[in-house]
C-alpha cells in the first residue's frame, strides 16, 4: 500500500511543480515527473512479490511461468514512455521557440492571453 501512496506523492509533487513554478522549463519538468509517477504506478500494478521477468528461456521449468510478473502493464508503460518522449520533445521545442520570442522562460512575462 505504501508504494501506491508514494506514487501519488510523486504525482502531487509533479503537479505542484507544474502549478507553482513560473519557469516554463520547470513546468515541463513537472509534467515529466507526473508522467513518470503514473508509469511507476502501472509497473507496480503488475508486480508480484518474488516475481521474475516474463521472458521464456529454452531450459526453463514450467513452474517458473507462475512467478512471472504481469507483462501487460510493462507494455503499456513502454507505450506511455514513447508518447511521453514525443510530448516532451514538442514541449522543449516550444520552450525554445518561446525563449526566442521573449528572451525569457518566465511564464508571467510570456503570458499575454487571458485564459
Amino acid at each position: 500500500m505504501t508504494v501506491y501512496f508514494l506514487c501519488v506523492v510523486l504525482l502531487t509533487m509533479g503537479l505542484y511543480c507544474l502549478v507553482a513554478k513560473k519557469n516554463i522549463v520547470k513546468k515541463v519538468l513537472g509534467i515529466v515527473i507526473m508522467d513518470y509517477a503514473v508509469n511507476l504506478y502501472l509497473i507496480i500494478i503488475g508486480y508480484k512479490t518474488g516475481g521474475v521477468a516474463p521472458i521464456i528461456e529454452a531450459d526453463m521449468p514450467l513452474s517458473t511461468l507462475e512467478r512471472f510478473v504481469d507483462p501487460l502493464p510493462q507494455a503499456l508503460v513502454l507505450t506511455s514512455i514513447v508518447i511521453g518522449l514525443g510530448v516532451m520533445s514538442l514541449m522543449v521545442a516550444m520552450c525554445i521557440r518561446l525563449y526566442e520570442k521573449h528572451g525569457t522562460f518566465d511564464m508571467s512575462v510570456i503570458s499575454k492571453l487571458r485564459g
Binding site: 521545442a93 525554445i96 521557440r97 525563449y99 526566442e100 528572451g103
Partner: peptide
C-alpha cells in the same frame, strides 16, 4: 537535430 538547430539559433539571437 531539430532541437539542436533551434537552440543554436536562439543562442545566436541572444
Amino acid at each position: 537535430s531539430a532541437l539542436a538547430i533551434f537552440r543554436r539559433r536562439s543562442f545566436r539571437a541572444m
